[in-house]
Amino acid sequence: MDEWNFFIHQVVPALNRGLVQSMWLILPSASIGLCLGALVGTLRAYGPLPLRKACDIYATVFRGTPLLVQLFVLYFGLPSIGIYLSPYTAAVLGFILCTGAYQSEYVRGAFLSIRRGQLLATQALGFSSMQSMLWVILPQAMRRALPGCGNEIIYLIKYSSLAYIITFIELTGEGKILAVKYFRYTEVFFAIGLYYLFMVTLANFLLTWLEKKLYIPGFGRG
């Protein structure tokens, strides 16, 4: 029964606390990151050349360097030029920038995959550019980007655990403290794994629901 008490009175409260902190990281990072990615992806597909290049560079840098390094720069590096970020701000900012870069890749790909002929057809019917964007391009691009963007959110749920390295104590951080204190790594980390699995399953469930809701026969194949 000792085992059971340890779980109920130590592990579960600590991990629940951590779960809430993780949610505080994930929800804003995922939503703002997705918006950033949508904006950057659109600019990379249709923007004026200088802006397109700038966005390409941003995406290359943030997809090409480890997230941990990005977090270190934000948290430990910026103070040397006089910018002090709290662990929370540094973590969320890092996640937004990183996930935004990946999301922009899916969004850009989705735009570029739409056959040019459909754009011609809207023009021939007298659509303005805004109208074709709104009623033909976006509804299709959204559906094409959804699987990739959803996957990226699932990655984000998992890599949000890196925040504890820059001292923001979230789910993994709480667990680690506990594991060290009681020297019970196996059980605690196993429990942490289950918590992440729970979050990912929930996200997956929502994404599948959304994909079903947006389903169109034969769309996105070929």
Partner: peptide, 13 residues
């Protein structure tokens, strides 16, 4: 002025 294209260009969605 309506236009009909060789490859239809219907809106897939």
């Amino acid at each position: 002025v309506g236009m009909i294209f060789q490859d239809f260009n219907l809106f897939d969605h």
